[in-house]
Design a protein around this nucleic acid. Structure first.
Lengths: 340, 340
DNA sequence: TTGTACGCGTTATCAT
DNA sequence: ATGATAACGCGTACAA
């Protein structure tokens, strides 16, 4: 690919003049500008952003480190980030870590060597992550997404996971449920998982109901109903579960139907994230909606405007759905919802 | 951030030696290598990939241009591409076009200026795309994903959309359906939409059944049941629909249930893509599964190994599901599947 | 094995 | 308004 010097020669000007045609066109006389543009068009010249970045010491690429793209929450967020970044003239270098710290470290190292202008990242555990101090040492501007740093005060954009899960659990309690379990994917050591379980416990303790241990699934994207089935039997059967993401909840709804367990009559199922598809199902999925697009938008915004960095907590929203109802077989005074 | 010269000084070697410690370590004596590494660690030095790229004229970043990330087919493909690329030491610059040619052009221009080493892209219509000749002129290696160029012979990896849709339609015909409609998102002018409709027509004509016009929805991610409801009435009601992607199908399943239309008894619904979540639903979604991960893997592979470029057609797979069954109210000789 | 010196394509400074 | 030139950080022929 041709360079500025070649363009300059063809246009009969100096390289500096040719350069100005792209970096500061209004500095040139209209006719010389046109000469340069004609020459560059003829040669198929395109400014080399790599050379520009080396010279100006300023990149127009942001890095993005996400755990996965299989959860629509992340892909929606990514799409929003890409739009916002592109509108500001930035591109996005994207990588996924699958929550593995080694991968997180390798990716961050790659981003640093690429000299990205900033990094939006979601790590397993913000308070025990090796990469955040690394980023700070390297003076690379970054914004945590979803993570909620408790100890350190890293810039972050998130929802109040604890309150969100508390409210969701309260909603189930209000419906009359007392045997409510929380279903989670792997990575219980993640900061969000901890906060959500705390929120779950908050609500139950407030209702003087003992919390149950987390039911941990092997996958983030699909639950295993066999883990749940035994708990639906016995003297105190589970009447409601709340999942830490919607994919788990949706797969449970399907499995329950296949197992002959009626949702919501026999088992109420609630999700977390509020992905779009949940609203399309029958029964529709009750969930805690996170503003994933907004979250992405804000993350990029915080990189673009350094002054705006800090902790930004976005509002979540309880989304009702037909996947939850009052428990059957249990007469709630004034609310007789028994089905059998 | 410090540079090689600083490292060299601290290590007591020349800048070239320091450089070799990173570009070609085995050229150095073990003790000098160690000296350099110690110095660079002390300074927090990281090789500048931008400078390296300018010098070597070789990038380790691939560009990726996708229509959207809201369809799991694309996000799964992207995740697979990222893994494969990273294993080879490459990063991914990701952008989405929403099928808009202007956005496609702007993104390609951006990628060219960034001097990416190659580009994986999905365009609206490969045979009428302005960007592909641009890429060829610029001599940027690229691979089309999903697109099926008919006229030109661009490198591409895809499934046989026409055959896939023909087989899916045939399956519905075999079940006894005669009133089968195809439901599509916007962008009917896309190459894949055309091919899939052709496949649909192929199957119907082979069965001496007149094809119906495409039912076009306003969104790629959710169908509008109101467009369908009228066609379920009358003398020749629709008994089956096949959607051009699973999200449309899933939303139709939910809407049908809410409208009191039994799936599959009154209406069989089939999808296309084979996204994972379809298998979790009740009823499970019958679909034509595309190997999205494999497709992404191959696309990167084709960029990494120029000799392997060309047209690569991946196998699709008919996935059965509980969302389709023999039509009710219609006696198929030897197959009396009536429910009423 | 290590050092010297040039150039990758651009922008910024200074001069004209 | 335009031109000459240095510098961004690095890889690599070539020399030692």
């Amino acid at each position: 690919m041709s360079d500025l010097l070649t363009v300059a020669k063809l246009a009969g000007v100096s390289r500096a003049t040719a350069a100005r045609a792209f970096s500061d066109p209004q500095l040139l006389r209209p006719d010389t500008l046109e000469k340069v543009l004609a020459a560059s068009a003829q040669l198929g010249f395109r400014p080399n952003h790599i050379a520009r970045q080396l010279r100006t010491q300023h990149s127009t690429t942001f890095g993005v480190l996400l755990p996965s793209l299989l959860n629509p929450v992340f892909s929606l967020q990514l799409q929003a980030m890409e739009r916002r970044a592109r509108d500001a003239g930035y591109g996005l270098l994207v990588a996924t870590s699958d929550y593995q710290p080694e991968r997180e470290a390798a990716i961050v190292e790659h981003m640093l060597r690429q000299r990205v202008a900033g990094l939006v990242l979601t790590v397993a555990d913000a308070d025990n992550s090796a990469v955040l101090p690394t980023l700070e040492e390297a003076a690379l501007p970054f914004v945590l997404a979803h993570n909620v740093p408790q100890q350190a005060s890293w810039p972050a954009v998130c929802v109040d996971n604890r309150a969100a899960m508390r409210e969701a659990t309260q909603q189930l309690l209000t419906l009359g449920h007392r045997q409510i379990a929380m279903v989670a994917g792997p990575m219980l050591q993640s900061d969000r998982a901890r906060l959500r379980y705390q929120g779950y416990c908050d609500a139950l303790q407030q209702a003087a109901t003992p919390p149950l241990p987390v039911i941990e699934m092997a996958s983030h994207t699909a639950a295993c109903f066999d883990r749940l089935a035994p708990l639906l039997q016995g003297a105190t059967p589970l009447t409601a579960v709340i999942c830490t993401n919607d994919l788990l909840a949706i797969s449970l709804m399907g499995d329950a139907a296949r197992a002959g367990v009626a949702v919501p009559q026999q088992l109420s199922i609630m999700g977390f994230d509020g992905i779009d598809i949940g609203t399309r199902l029958a029964p529709s999925l009750a969930s805690v909606a996170q503003p994933a697009g907004e979250l992405g938008h804000h993350a990029i915004e915080m990189l673009l405007h350094p002054v705006s960095r800090g902790l930004r907590v976005l509002p979540h929203q309880l989304r009702n759905g037909a996947s939850i109802a009052a428990p059957a077989f249990i007469a709630t005074p004034g609310n007789p919802h028994e089905t059998a």
